[in-house]
Design a protein around this nucleic acid. Structure first.
Length: 763
RNA sequence: UGGCCCGUCGUCUAAUGGCAGGACACCGGUCUUUGGAACCGGCGGUGGUGGUUCGAAUCCACCCGGGCCAACCA
C-alpha cells in the first residue's frame, strides 16, 4: 500500500473525517490532459472507488480567464471517461465559487490579514526579495481595514484598470518560504471568462482559490504533485485564518509521472502543436491522452502503467520499456493478428501451377484451436514478402531467407530460394522460389527443421494501406529543458504509403487494434481511416531480440535503455565530528561538551543545540560520571522523540529526572529497552524518574525457561529458517529474536533472548 | 547563498527497529508456424562516514548528490 493510502486508512481508523473519503482531480482547462495527468486521475479516482461512499470530484480550476476554454473542458471530460473513470454528479468549477471566495477575501480584510497593494507589478517583484534575501514591506501594507475594504469592493465593482491594485495576504515579507511573503490573492483582469462572462473584473489566484475550493467541497484528501510542497504552508494558513470548517482538507504531495523520451509540460506540448512539429493535440505521437488514444494505446494499459509505477515521494523517471510493456501486455491479449507487408519483395513460386489458387486459414488470435475465430489467407503463385526477411549476405545468426535456403511462409508452405532476379540497378527485384508441396499449411514433415516463419500476402489479393510508423517524439530520454526542440526526433513518424495487407483488412473499421505479425501492434486511425482508405498507426513494436542484437529498431524496448547513469558522489575524506562545526560558538560548545565527558560524536550534536546543551550541563551536574550516557540519550533517543512525537516536549524534561534516569540505566536497574519507554514518558508528562517508572508497565520476561520455550516453539515452526541459519545465514538470528519480541508483545529481554537463540541454533 | 523535500538493484517500488522482496529491463534456458507470447532460472541494490541499539535501509549527526520555490500562471 502506498503512503497516501496509508494516510487515508489511518484517518479512517481515527475517524478524522467521520469515515468520509473525498478526493478531487482539479485540472486547469487550458490544454489537453497527458500521461502525467493519468497518474493523478488513477490515484484520485482509484482511491475514491476503493472506499464505500468515497467520491472523487472533477473540478475545473478555471481562475485564469485568459487561457481557459470550454473546448478544453470537453476534451478533459472525454479523456477521463475514456480512461475509465466517472465523477458522477460531482462536476465542479472553481469559477462557481467566485462569490464565496470574494466573501472569504472580505473576511480576511476585516481581520486585518489582507490588504490592497497598489504597487506596480515590478515593484512587487522587486520587494519580494529572493531566495537568500528577505523581502521588504510594501508602503501600502498598513492601510486601514476600512480603506482596504473600500478599495477591494471597488476592485470588484470594476472601477480600476488591470494591474492597478492587487489583494495580498498580510503574512511576512521576510518569510524563508517565498510563498508566504504576502502572497497575492486577487488580481484585476477585465477579461471575458468562458463561463462567467463579464461578471468578474477580479480573479482569485491559485493559492487562494484552491484550498478554499477543496474546503467548500468538503474534500478530505487533497492530493497534488511535489512542486506544490512549498504551497502547503499557505494552503493551511488560509484555511486556518478564514476559519474554514473543520475537519479541514489536508494536502499531500506525491511524485509526478515523468516518462523518458517524452515532454509533458503544457508549454512544450503547446509549442509542438504551434510549431507544426505534430498535427495537433491528438497527434498519435503526442503523450496527451487524446494522442495516445489515437495511437492505439488502451486505457487498461495506462492504468497498468500507473499501477506499476506506484505512488511515492521520491523523484523518479519511468523508462520507456515499462510503458511499452504495459501496452503490449494488454494488446497481446486482445489484438487480432494479421499479415501486412511494409516493404514488399516479389516472390514467384516457380513450382506452383500458374493460375492456381487456394485459401489457408489462420487463427485470429494465438493459441486458438477449434471454435476460435479464424481468418482466410488466399494464396497464389505470386507472393509478396518483407524485403527485410531476405538477405543475400546474411549477417551471422540470420535465420530467414537466403539464396539456396528455406523459409516458411507462415500458415502456407516452406519455400526455397532458387534464384535472385535483379533490376537494371542491380537491386534485388524478385525471388524465384520453389514450393515444397509436402509442407502444405506450413506444417513441416517430421524431421524437417525450418528455422523461420515469415509473413506474406498474395499479390493478387493484397489490399493497400497507409501505415504510420510511430516512434518516440524525442531522441533523448530527458530533452534539454532550455532547448527541448533540439532533441525532436525527425523520424518520430515514418509514413509507409503503400503497405500491402491481407484482404481481411479491406473493411477494417476505424479505431480497431491489430497485431501485424512480427511487426507490432497497429491501430486503424479513428480519423483518417474513412471512405475506404486504410490508415494504421503503429502503437508499439513487438519485443524483438534480433533487432535488439543488431541494433536495428530504435523504439524497441530492448534497444533502448543503458543511457542514463546515476552520478555517484565522489569519495571524499570525512570530517571528524568537531570539524563540521561552522561557528566559533559551536566549536567552543563542542570543546566544552567533550571536556565535560560527552563523546565527540555526541558533543558535535550538542554543540549545535543550545537547549540540549543546557539540559546536558544541568543533568551531568548531579551525575558527572554519567556524562557520556546522558549525552548519548539526549542526542539519539530524545532528539528522535521530540522530532516525531508531537506530545514529546524537551521543556518538560527535568534535568534531575534525566540524571536519575541515566544513573538507573547505567546501573542496570532498568534495561535500555525499559529506558526508552521511560524517557518517552518523561518527555510527554514531565515529573521525576521514579514517578514515571512507577506509572508504567515495565514488566520484562527474562526468565530463561520461558524464553527457551518460546524459542522452541518458533524453531519448530520454522525448521527451514533454522536450517538456513546453520548454513550460514546468520542474519536470521534477528528474525528469531524478532519473533520472540513479537510474541511476548515486546516484553522479552532481547539481549538474553539473542544469546539463548544463538545457543539453541548452534547446538 | 535561505527554506522545504528526496536518495534502496540499470529503472520503478516494498520492507513502518527483526529474513533486503516484487515488477520492468538485461542475460541464459524450455517451448514455439511471430527472432513474438508463455514458462523456468540467473545477474543485480540500501549514496558516504561516524554514532545509538541485542539487532539499523529504517533512529541521531555530519558529508555528498538530486529536486522545488524569487508569474498579477496553476
Amino acid at each position: 500500500m502506498d503512503f497516501i493510502r496509508q494516510v487515508i486508512s489511518r484517518d479512517l481508523k481515527t475517524g478524522k473525517y467521520g469515515g468520509r473519503v473525498v478526493t478531487r482531480f482539479p485540472p486547469e482547462p487550458n490544454g489537453f490532459l497527458h500521461i502525467g495527468h493519468a497518474k493523478a486521475i488513477c490515484l484520485n479516482f482509484g482511491i475514491a472507488a476503493e472506499h464505500p461512499g468515497g467520491r472523487c470530484h472533477l473540478r475545473l480550476d478555471d481562475t485564469n480567464p485568459d487561457t481557459e476554454k470550454s473546448e478544453f473542458v470537453e476534451a478533459m471530460k472525454e479523456d477521463i471517461r475514456w480512461l475509465g473513470y466517472d465523477w458522477g454528479e460531482h462536476l465542479y468549477h472553481a469559477s462557481d465559487y467566485f462569490e464565496a471566495l470574494y466573501r472569504y477575501a472580505l473576511a480576511l480584510i476585516d481581520k486585518g490579514l489582507a490588504y490592497v497593494d497598489s504597487s506596480t507589478e515590478a515593484e512587487i517583484r522587486e520587494r519580494r526579495g529572493n531566495v537568500t534575501t528577505p523581502g521588504t514591506d510594501s508602503p501600502f501594507r498598513d492601510r486601514a481595514v476600512k480603506v482596504n475594504r473600500d478599495l477591494f469592493e471597488r476592485m470588484r465593482a470594476g472601477e480600476f484598470p488591470d494591474g492597478s491594485h492587487v489583494l495580498r495576504a498580510k503574512i511576512d515579507m521576510a518569510h524563508p518560504n517565498m510563498v508566504m511573503r504576502d502572497p497575492l490573492l486577487y488580481r484585476i483582469r477585465h477579461s471575458h471568462h468562458y463561463r462567467q462572462g463579464d461578471d468578474w473584473p477580479i480573479y482569485p489566484m491559485y493559492d487562494f482559490a484552491h484550498c478554499l475550493s477543496d474546503s467548500l467541497e468538503r474534500v478530505t484528501h487533497s492530493l497534488c504533485t511535489l512542486e506544490f510542497e512549498n504551497n502547503r504552508e499557505i494552503y493551511d494558513w488560509l484555511l486556518e485564518h478564514v476559519d474554514a470548517p473543520a475537519p479541514r482538507p489536508e494536502q499531500t504531495e506525491f511524485a509526478p509521472l515523468v516518462l523518458d523520451y517524452v515532454v509533458t509540460s503544457k508549454r512544450r506540448l503547446k509549442e509542438l502543436v504551434r510549431a507544426g512539429r505534430v498535427r495537433g493535440w491528438d497527434d498519435p505521437r503526442m503523450p496527451t491522452l487524446a494522442g495516445l488514444r489515437r495511437r492505439g494505446v488502451t486505457p487498461e494499459a495506462i492504468r497498468t502503467l500507473c499501477d506499476m509505477v506506484g505512488v511515492a515521494r521520491a523523484q523518479s523517471r519511468i523508462d520507456a520499456g515499462k510503458f511499452e510493456y504495459a501496452v503490449r501486455d494488454d494488446l497481446n491479449r486482445r489484438a487480432p493478428r494479421a499479415f501486412c507487408v511494409l516493404d514488399p519483395l516479389r516472390v514467384v513460386l516457380t513450382t506452383y501451377p500458374e493460375g492456381a489458387e487456394e485459401t489457408f486459414t489462420a487463427p485470429a488470435l494465438p493459441g486458438g484451436g477449434d471454435g476460435h475465430p479464424v481468418r482466410n489467407l488466399p494464396f497464389g503463385r505470386d507472393i509478396l514478402m518483407e524485403r527485410e526477411d531476405f538477405a543475400e549476405n546474411p549477417p551471422p545468426g540470420f535465420r530467414r531467407l537466403v539464396p539456396g535456403g528455406e523459409v516458411r511462409l507462415k500458415y502456407a508452405y516452406v519455400i526455397r530460394c532458387d534464384e535472385v532476379v535483379r533490376d537494371a540497378d542491380g537491386r534485388v527485384a524478385e525471388l524465384r522460389c520453389s514450393v515444397d508441396h509436402a509442407t502444405r499449411g506450413g506444417v513441416a514433415p517430421t524431421g524437417r527443421r525450418v528455422r523461420a516463419a515469415v509473413h506474406w500476402v498474395a499479390a493478387d489479393h493484397a489490399v493497400s494501406a497507409e501505415v504510420r510508423l510511430i516512434d518516440r517524439l524525442f531522441l533523448e530520454p530527458e530533452p534539454p529543458p532550455d532547448d527541448f526542440m533540439r532533441a525532436f526526433n525527425p523520424e518520430s513518424e515514418r509514413v509507409v504509403p503503400g503497405a500491402l495487407a491481407e484482404p481481411g483488412l479491406a473493411d477494417a473499421a476505424p479505431g480497431v487494434h491489430y497485431q501485424f505479425e512480427r511487426l507490432g501492434y497497429f491501430f486503424s486511425d479513428p480519423v483518417d481511416c474513412v471512405d475506404g482508405r486504410l490508415v494504421f498507426n503503429r502503437t508499439v513494436t513487438l519485443r524483438d531480440s534480433w533487432a535488439a542484437r543488431s541494433g536495428g529498431n530504435p523504439s524497441s524496448g530492448a534497444a533502448a535503455g543503458a543511457s542514463r547513469r546515476k552520478v555517484r558522489p565522489r569519495e571524499t575524506g570525512q570530517p571528524a565530528p568537531g570539524q563540521s562545526l561552522h561557528t566559533d560558538t559551536e566549536r567552543r560548545r563542542f570543546r566544552e561538551a567533550v571536556s565535560l565527558g560527552a563523546t565527540e560524536a555526541a558533543a558535535a550534536s550538542l554543540a549545535r543545540s543550545q537547549p540540549l546543551l543546557e539540559i546536558f550541563g544541568a543533568a551531568r551536574g548531579t551525575y558527572p560520571e554519567g556524562s557520556a550516557s546522558i549525552a548519548a540519550w539526549l542526542v539519539n533517543e530524545i532528539t528522535r522523540l521530540t522530532g516525531s512525537d508531537p506530545e514529546a516536549r524537551l521543556e518538560r524534561l527535568d534535568p534531575a529526572a534525566l540524571a536519575d534516569f541515566a544513573r538507573a540505566v547505567d546501573g542496570g536497574v532498568v534495561s535500555h529497552r525499559q529506558g526508552r519507554t521511560i524517557i518517552a514518558e518523561l518527555l510527554r508528562r514531565g515529573g521525576s524518574f521514579e514517578e514515571a517508572r512507577a506509572g508504567l508497565d515495565l514488566s520484562e520476561i527474562a526468565d530463561e525457561a520461558t524464553l527457551r520455550a518460546l524459542l522452541e516453539e518458533i524453531l519448530a515452526e520454522y525448521p527451514d529458517k533454522a536450517a538456513a541459519y546453520r548454513n550460514g545465514q546468520k542474519g536470521l538470528l534477528g528474525f528469531f529474536v524478532g519473533e520472540v519480541m513479537k510474541r511476548s508483545r515486546g516484553k522479552a529481554d532481547p539481549r538474553k533472548t539473542s544469546r539463548i537463540a544463538a545457543g539453541m541454533l548452534e547446538g
